[in-house]
Amino acid sequence: MISCRLLVVGSLILHKGGGEKDIDVMPDPRKNTIPCQSNFGFSKLLLALLLILFLLKQILLSVSFITFFQKNSQLLEDKHYKRFIKEMILTNLECVRINSTMKGKVWSCCPEKWKSFSSSCYFFSTDAKPWKESQENCSRMEAHLVVINSKEEQDFLTQNMDKAAAYFVGLSDPEGQGHWQWVDQTPYNQSATFWHPGEPSHREERCVVVNPRPTSAQWGWNDIPCKDRHRSVCEMMKIYL
């Protein structure tokens, strides 16, 4: 601590010859000093207080961020929600009112230009690509090549297909061993297939299209080389609001 001394000026009154005369004298500095402190100590205290306030502010901001993240992490991790946000940004939604048992869900929605059937939305492409590129195109839209589970679904698809085209679906045999697999891991059910007579016909033809037979106009499945270029159908789950 730095200190200083304040010199006090006193007065001494002398009496001489009946008269009075004031004489200013300097008192003994050892007896007339008043200690004082500089502003240095106060500055250190103020700096410490400001530092504490800054740290408290940072802690409060951190706590607020953690609380917000914890409350919203489940929502952010939900794939359905992320898909909904993406579709809202990229497209408009077409919704219909439903009688739903799902709490708070009263609208069934598909992206604009997609077809609605049961619990899914379907996109029928108009450009031709190989099977792999078709699946990648579906993935970019948060969907996958269509997985056909019933005759009703098969009929819905063919009613919306161009009779002059063939459409890739999400069924393939990657090893060429007759082990057919759906892209969404749905088990392949031999009793729920719609192959044309005589199909599948060749081990090198490892991907599947839906197309009409030229002679009968009957729609069915046909195995073909995956590198062939055809249209495709993408499928995604409906969005419920």
Rank of each mutant, 00 (worst) to 15 (best):
C207F: 02
G104C: 09
Q135F: 01
N160D: 13
E94A: 06
E142T: 05
K31C: 00
K113R: 08
S11G: 15
E94Q: 10
P187H: 03
F168C: 08
E77R: 04
F68P: 08
I66E: 00
S11V: 15
S232W: 01
V106D: 09
S38K: 02
G176C: 06
K115W: 03
D184V: 12
S134K: 06
K44N: 11
I2Q: 15
L14G: 12
D228Q: 01
S108E: 08
D24G: 15
M237R: 07
T101S: 14
N211Q: 05
A128E: 07
L145R: 06
V25S: 15
P27H: 07
V147M: 08
P130H: 06
H230S: 11
W219I: 01
L47T: 14
Q190E: 01
V25W: 11
I23D: 10
Q58P: 00
L93V: 07
S232E: 03
R206G: 01
N39T: 10
N211M: 07
Y167S: 11
C234L: 01
A165N: 05
E235H: 04
E153P: 01
G198H: 02
Q74Y: 00
R97V: 08
R97C: 14
Q159Y: 14
Q190C: 09
L75E: 03
S38P: 09
P197K: 07
G104S: 12
C234N: 02
E112Q: 09
S150G: 07
T158Y: 00
W219H: 00
L46G: 08
K115V: 10
L93Y: 01
G220C: 03
D127C: 10
K57A: 11
Q190H: 04
V25T: 14
L7D: 12
C138E: 01
D22N: 09
L14I: 14
D78Q: 07
Y167P: 02
P27V: 10
V233I: 13
L56A: 11
Q181L: 15
I224A: 06
Y81P: 03
W182G: 06
